[in-house]
Amino acid sequence: MTLWMDIGALTDIPQQGARVVKTAAGCVAVFRTADDQVFAIDDACPHKGGPLSEGIVHGSSVTCPLHAWVFSLETGMAQGADTGAVNSYPARVEAGRILLDASRLARRAAA
């Protein structure tokens, strides 16, 4: 069941930027694109654990700051020649607030 949880205002994240949400099982990176779409994926690159929230956001992709792997924010899949993926979580914006699916986050913590 989807349980939408308010984690902050859309304006808390700069356009083409990210912030993290701390959970018991590590950080989730919440991204805001240039056209104000919001995506949530794990904040650790499967390659060497780089913080994806610190990457450059372009279109609906992010480039890991450590070794430049590129991930689709929509699917969490690594792009191009690299293979790998991070978990992605349902996120949406309602009345300027960012909502994450708390049930998915909780399952992540339990896993």
Binding site: M5, I7, G8, D12, I13, P14, R19, V20, V21, K22, T23, A24, A25, C27, V30, A102, L105, A106, R108, A109
Partner: peptide, 15 residues
């Protein structure tokens, strides 16, 4: 200051 910290901390709730 806010931008340097996590935007939310769910580590307690999620546990």
């Amino acid at each position: 200051l806010a931008q340097w910290a996590p935007m939310a901390d769910l580590s307690l709730e999620a546990a």
